[in-house]
Structure formats: structure tokens, C-alpha cells
């Protein structure tokens, strides 16, 4: 897991490094300014952002869309609960000093975000009607395929109006697949586009990645249940 930590206090930096480096699969980068974090994420993909509240939050409030789709945690001497009302709120607020318990929480939280898609919703509403289930699964498949085809094209052409429509149509489909993180992310992207905020490259790529993940599951389901499109 690739973590970017924004902190200008050298002691806090060291402390966090010591704790997080104890975990085998964590690759930590520390920067001391928010602007450096901007530069970093424009070049490299990260999985998690941890930020000191004071260094980060004024920027987050104004530039949240630059970090759209990147899960983040806040550390502070006095965590501000109001941050939970931000459009993209932190996953958790930690009281300084950063502790082993916090790093465990980050790992657990990130694990819980990993999507385990299912089609229980479609199975329930089509109970006793296998043909309808098949029909609905193939409709979903075509909508995900359409999204994967259209989003890069519309993004490149800067056709925001149509991009909003495509994203909007797909939001609730993630709910159908129980992919709650993707559901929230697509929701934020739609708000961001409607507010005419520019998507960052990370967010744009994640749109396609999340759709592909959903599509992979649908294809797996079709194969597993031997469904055939009539």
C-alpha cells in the first residue's frame, strides 16, 4: 500500500515513519508541504493520503477535487469534527501522536473498502424469474461496457455535459453491485463535474478502473451461472 504523508513537523514525521515502516506492505513517502503532495500525486499513484490537519485542511477545503478518489486520514492535536461534513470527508481523524493503533486502523479501513461485489439486489427483485435476471445482468454488463468506452472519449473531448449523464447513470449501478466505495466516488465525481471543477487524472483513471472492476465481476457471474443473452 502506497501512502503519502503530509507533515511539516519533523518529530511527527519521524514518529509516523517508524510506526508505518513496521508494516511490511507499506511504502511511505513524506512531504512537508501541501504543494509537494500535489506534485507527487500528479506523477505517481498512491493508495492513501495522511495529512496533518493544520498543514492540509485549508487546502483540502479549497482543492478537495484535486484529491478526489484518494482515501485520506487526518492527524491532529485537536481533530476538527466539522471535517466530516466535507464533500470528500476524511476516513478517520486521529489524535496526535500517531500510534500503532492508528496504522492498524488505516490497514483495516482500507481492507474494508475493497469491493466484494454481488448481485443480491438483482437476484432478489427477480426471484422466480430467471429470464428476467439474465436480462437485467446483461443490461448491467452493457451499461458498464458503455461507460468504459465513453468516459475516456468524453473526458478527452471535455464534453462535461454528456460525461455527467454517463456518470450519473452508473452511480446507482454500483449500489446494485454493493460496491459502496465506488458508489460514493462516482457520486462525488458527478458533484465535481456539475460544479465545473476539473477532474484530476487520478480520479479520471479511477472512474474507468472501478467500472472495469464491476464489469469483471459481472462477466464472472455470467460465466459462473452460465447465463446466455437471448
Amino acid at each position: 500500500m502506497k501512502i503519502l504523508y503530509i507533515e511539516d513537523d519533523v518529530i511527527d514525521q519521524k514518529n509516523c515513519q517508524i510506526i508505518l515502516n513496521q508494516k511490511e506492505d507499506i511504502n511511505l513517502t513524506v512531504v512537508d508541504q501541501f504543494e509537494k503532495a500535489f506534485d507527487f500525486i500528479s506523477k505517481e499513484k498512491i493508495d492513501v493520503l495522511i495529512s496533518d490537519q493544520r498543514v492540509g485542511m485549508d487546502h483540502f477545503k479549497d482543492h478537495w477535487h484535486q484529491f478526489l478518489g484518494i482515501p485520506y486520514f487526518i492527524v491532529s492535536n485537536s481533530p476538527d469534527e466539522n471535517l466530516n461534513t466535507l464533500l470528500q470527508p476524511p476516513l478517520q481523524l486521529f489524535q496526535k501522536p500517531f500510534q500503532v493503533e492508528h496504522s492498524d486502523n488505516i490497514v483495516k479501513k482500507m481492507e474494508s473498502l475493497k469491493a466484494e461485489p454481488n448481485l443480491s439486489y438483482a437476484e432478489n427483485i427477480t426471484e422466480g424469474a430467471p429470464d428476467l435476471l439474465t436480462e437485467m445482468v446483461f443490461i448491467l454488463k452493457s451499461q458498464f461496457e458503455e461507460g468504459i468506452d465513453k468516459i475516456p472519449y468524453l473526458y478527452e473531448k471535455k464534453n462535461t455535459e454528456e460525461l455527467i449523464q454517463v456518470v450519473h447513470k452508473l452511480i446507482s449501478k454500483f449500489s446494485v453491485l454493493s460496491m459502496s466505495e465506488s458508489f460514493s466516488f462516482f457520486n462525488r465525481v458527478e458533484k465535481c463535474l456539475r460544479d465545473q471543477l476539473t477532474l484530476n487524472n487520478f480520479a479520471y483513471k479511477r472512474l474507468v478502473t472501478d467500472l472495469q472492476e464491476g464489469l469483471n465481476f459481472i462477466n464472472f457471474y455470467i460465466k459462473q451461472h452460465e447465463l446466455h443473452n437471448s
Partner: peptide, 14 residues
């Protein structure tokens, strides 16, 4: 509804 998936859903409920 312009979304075929939900047309089918609501249709089956009806």
C-alpha cells in the same frame, strides 16, 4: 425512466 435497468425493475414490480 431513461434507464433500461430501472424500467425493467419497476416493470417487474408492477
Amino acid at each position: 425512466d431513461d434507464d433500461l435497468f430501472y424500467c425493467k425493475t419497476l416493470q417487474s414490480f408492477c
